[in-house]
């Protein structure tokens, strides 16, 4: 129950949520709600693991995972952007399809044994910083460091670059963006693809770094849905999404660690002596997601913040009043 270790492992396992949440932030900022994150993560985790077994190179596994998940996301993109169907139901369908394909193609992978994982290393100098060094920069997976870079990049891209401005325009007021000559349809396809790739990267982070292996649907265990919830809590802001992801990662680790020691704060550890209480601990990430949603929604009402105005709406050229 060393808090440093819990936070260190929390950052690692939070990186899974971080990638998925960043991808969903980008897709939703363009106006497309994609509830298929869980399915895309599963297919990413499965393909990363199986390609790494086949090639022996985890980097190829990660790249293939991103590409495959991106491809899967294009089913959703076609249905909601071109065919203008309901985004909620299509996202659910994507989750089912992604899970189904992963289960079919991943059959037998759970007995595949060990593979080479993404490398872990410490950053010189930075790892010497007291407290933060051991938590953030010591023996972390390269994917964790990629997460550190991606978060501010995404924030800067969305808020301070021209393409980011276009992205927000497409999500807030597609008709105006269209009038400015921005191709709304192409932008949305693109950001759904990027969102899919990042969800796939999240899945790959599970199977090749955080919890190596393929355990059918338990591999993700609802983390894709938690990521979707985090995006709402984060008010579509990458920095808040990152903080939320790391907090959830730490919580997951704390739940594992709290059951191990004999004593807790000088008393008999109730979770050690009543192992079945662990089931209540397992509820915590899901219960916290609900609580976090309540907090996020209240804040949104108070500050008059909100989702991108066109989120969930198909853009139909020439239709008035939007």
């Amino acid at each position: 129950m060393d808090p440093i270790i819990i936070l260190q492992a929390g950052v690692a396992s939070g990186t899974v949520l971080l990638f998925a949440a960043l991808g969903e932030v980008l897709a939703e900022r363009s106006g497309v709600l994609n509830l298929g994150v869980e399915g895309m993560m599963l297919i990413g985790a499965m393909s990363a693991f199986s390609v790494t077994i086949a090639t022996g190179n985890p980097w190829i596994g990660v790249l293939v995972a991103m590409f495959v998940a991106g491809l899967l996301s294009q089913i959703h993109a076609f249905i909601v952007i071109t065919l203008q169907a309901d985004q909620v139901v299509s996202g659910l369908a994507l989750t089912l399809v992604g899970a189904g394909i992963s289960l079919v193609l991943g059959e037998g992978l759970s007995k595949a044994g060990t593979v080479s994982l993404m490398p872990n290393f410490s950053i010189p100098l930075l790892s010497q910083i007291p407290i933060l060094g051991p938590i953030l920069f010591t023996r972390q997976s390269v994917l964790v460091y990629i997460g550190y870079l991606l978060t501010p990049l995404a924030w800067y891209y969305i808020n301070h670059t021209r393409p980011g401005l276009h992205l927000r325009a497409v999500g807030e007021y597609p008709a105006a963006a269209d009038a400015l000559g921005i191709n709304v349809f192409r932008m949305r396809y693109m950001y759904v693809f990027v969102g899919g790739m990042l969800a796939g990267l999240g899945g790959a982070t599970i199977s090749l770094a955080v919890a190596p292996g393929w355990f059918s649907e338990l591999t993700t265990g609802g983390q894709g849905w938690i990521a979707v919830g985090l995006v709402i809590f984060a008010q579509w802001d990458p920095i808040r999404a990152a903080l939320g992801s790391y907090a959830f990662g730490a919580l997951r680790r704390l739940i594992l660690d709290i059951q191990a020691p004999l004593t807790l704060f000088g008393m008999d550890n109730p979770f050690y002596y009543n192992p079945y209480w662990g089931f209540f601990l397992q509820m915590l990430p899901y219960a916290f997601t609900v609580i976090v949603l309540v907090i996020g929604s209240r804040e949104a009402i108070r500050k008059r913040l909100g989702a991108p105005a066109a989120l969930g709406e198909p853009y139909i050229r020439g239709e008035r009043g939007k």
Binding site: I79, L83, S90, L96, G100, I101, V104
Partner: peptide, 17 residues
């Protein structure tokens, strides 16, 4: 064993489309 789930998902995708 994932086949029924995959078929269910595919049916839903085609229905929405």
């Amino acid at each position: 064993s994932g086949i029924p789930k995959m078929i269910q998902g595919t049916i839903l995708v085609c229905l929405i489309a």
